[in-house]
Design a protein around this nucleic acid. Structure first.
Lengths: 145, 145
DNA sequence: TATTGTTATACTCTATAACTATA
DNA sequence: TATAGTTATAGAGTATAACAATA
């Protein structure tokens, strides 16, 4: 069975679905230790290692001043540390702290309670579709442009 | 080939992917006539017809005061209209205007330029995965809880 | 002069609490 | 008293513009 996907309609539908799910996910974390914005930055540090604020802003696709604020909040909470760049006095190296690493592990394995409960109701085929979609979306977002 | 999906890791990955894509989509609409929040509300009115602010807030999964603001901005822009409820003086009926309807059609068919260009690079299998994912996500968000 | 990062400022989105009008 | 909606207020997230420090 072949189904031709209308990618223009899909672009619109995907946009709305993503925005609505993002709204849910953010609002359901009111009690969490870190917001999704903070968690996203920490996940990048965990996956790719220490980097400068500028590099982190680029990876997260936000402007540098936005990342300055995220880093400041994570620093205040003790989840990241800052160190001077060894050779370039303008730059700074941001690293996950021990606490930050522990939090990431915790979040990854047990934190997304609401979504976990939702996913528990899906069958294997649906989970596979979502998994494929995550890979595709990640690639889309990471392409240079 | 059978692959067992770890739904806990998927929950985390999906959260991050969705939040990042939502960030992209919002920032790429700086020049658009309506924001994604506004477009989402209008899409619901288009799909389900006129309704009260309270019902629209419930469908969009935001609190009533948030929807009041969205409606006020759409009203100011001429994309929706307000009418008194025929029998209940407390309630209000919100309808898409002609202009609003036209905008929805326009957005659906030609507006998501960036995402369209991204989707154009995908093959049919990948598009199908995304389409499935949109259906699943929509169901997740729409479940009562 | 160019680059890195921060500060100052402002706008959007969303929420909770308190209020008004109507039922 | 209960419900629908709005107003008041606040906080998170993000942006652009201007600045400081260093290369």
């Amino acid at each position: 069975m072949f189904v031709t996907v209308d990618s223009r309609v899909l672009a619109s539908d995907l946009s709305l679905a993503v925005v609505r799910l993002a709204r849910h996910l953010r609002s359901r974390r009111a009690d969490a230790k870190v917001s999704l914005t903070q968690l996203s930055a920490m996940a990048t540090l965990a996956r790719e290692g220490a980097m400068t604020p500028g590099a982190l802003a680029a990876r997260e696709r936000v402007q540098p001043p936005s990342m300055t604020r995220v880093i400041a909040s994570l620093l205040a909470a003790g989840f990241v540390e800052r160190a001077p760049h060894p050779t370039d006095g303008r730059q700074v190296i941001v690293t996950l702290s021990e606490t930050g690493l522990a939090l990431i592990a915790d979040e990854t394995h047990a934190r997304e309670v609401w979504m976990n409960s939702k996913l528990a109701d899906l069958d294997e085929t649906q989970l596979k579709s979502l998994e494929d979609a995550v890979a595709i979306i990640t690639t889309l977002v990471n392409e240079s442009d």
